[in-house]
Structure formats: C-alpha cells, structure tokens
Amino acid sequence: MISAGIDLGAGTTKVLLYDADLAALGTVSVRTRPDLEATATEALLAACDAAGVRREDIAYVATTGYGRYQIPERDLQITEVTCHARGARHLFPDTRCVLDVGAQSSRAMRVDDRGRVIRFRMNDRCAAGAGKFLERVARALEIPLEELPAVALRSTDPQPISSICAVLAESEVINHISQGKPVEDILMGAHLSIADRVLALLRQVGADGEVALTGGLARNPAMVKALELRLGRPLHHSDHSPFAGALGAALLGQQRLAKRNAGGGA
C-alpha cells in the first residue's frame, strides 16, 4: 500500500511516496505557486510519474505545511511540528532535537526517545530566521539564490548583521557594500544571523542531545556550517532533510492505512 506525504510549504512543495514494503519510492520538489491546490496536484502527479506508479495506486494522502488545508484530495492533514519530528526521527533515529528551517518559518522541536514531540517553539510571524531573510539579502547583493552557499562559504571574516528584520537587513547590507566589505563576508553574516535566531528557538526547548536539521535550508551547506559554528557541534542532515515533513506525513499515513486495514477485518 502506498501513502503520499505532501508538504505544501511557503517556498517549495515536497511530495514523498512511501510503500509499506519498499520504503520511500521517490520524491519530488516544486516551487509553490500562488494556486496551492494546483501546485499540490501537479507535484503529486509528478511524484507518481517519477516512481512509476499510477495516482489510483496511492491509498492514502496525508498533507502538512502551511498550505495543508488547501489540498482537497487529502485524507488527513497533520501539523508541520508532528511531521518534521516523525520524519527526522526516521532519518536520524538518535535525534532529540529537530530544527526545521523553511522559507517563511522556523521551528525547534524537542522529541522523546520514541520521536514524540515534547516541546516546540516556532516563528512564523516574521521572516527573520527563515529562508526569506536570505532571499532578501541575496537580492540586495544581486547574487542568484543557487549561488548563495558557495559564495558564503568563501568568507574569512563574516560581517555581523544587526537588523533582525529582513527588510531592514537589506539596507544594512547595502551599507556594508558601500563600505567595501566583501560580498562573501556579508553573506556569511546573513547565514549566521539566521543561525542565531533559530538556535534561540532551540535553546527555549532545550538544546542538549543530537540535533537534526530539516526543511529547505538543510540543503544549503553554508546554513549547515553557520548552525554548526554557533551550536559548537555537528548536526544531522542529509539530502533527505528537506523532505522530512513529507516523509513524516507519509509515515503517519502508513499508520492510518495499517489501522484501517486491521479495523476492516482483513
């Protein structure tokens, strides 16, 4: 039985198909467009194509992310907190803390030894400490988004960015440029600023134990480096990290399927 996890985020929509016997079948990630419903449907069909299965083969659709209510074909919607914790625990079994850094929000979750969320803190009111902050800085620096990590990693003397607000940080960046500060140092400063905001959330839930990074920014090596620098120890992360939310949703979907089948007197 195949379940689909759809994580409809503010920046990207991630879909992961999971088969009870075969584990993860494949993933698809697309840019979220203003039409959330259409974005989700297209991403789901693309994931089916990639995995070589038909839409009818999917027995259960679980949704998460900020647009999780906008997907009519869902069987279940689940909060991001639950899904990221579940997904991170599946990817990195020793995880005690999960940091989810996305385009518009960041979260810190503390989980118990079974992956259940004990406490969490989040910021989804403001772009500080989220990917949008980097987008703004990139725009001010006129650097394409995909080049950000490589440029930031060349930094030797990161420049502190004192503005918390993403919009005001743009002016600060322009000031740094006019003072002749190297672009890579300004950019690394922006990554460190996000790291500081996110780790402040982490400290509120308790930062001890192994930490896993999920969400879109997990694929940015400069972000990983900034977090590890400020945290003082390595983080768990992998290519699957951005899909942790979709994975958690798909896994919880599998649980529901198993229950449904058992209840159906199979």
Binding site: P34, R125, C126, A127, R136, C165, A166
Partner: peptide
C-alpha cells in the same frame, strides 16, 4: 493579517 513586510507580499499576491 500578516505583520511582516515580507509575508505581506505573498498575502497581496494571493
């Protein structure tokens, strides 16, 4: 409904 200037951009788009 959003307070953040960055998020209001998306709100306006929607």
């Amino acid at each position: 409904t959003n307070v953040c200037t960055v998020f209001v951009e998306s709100e306006i788009m929607s």
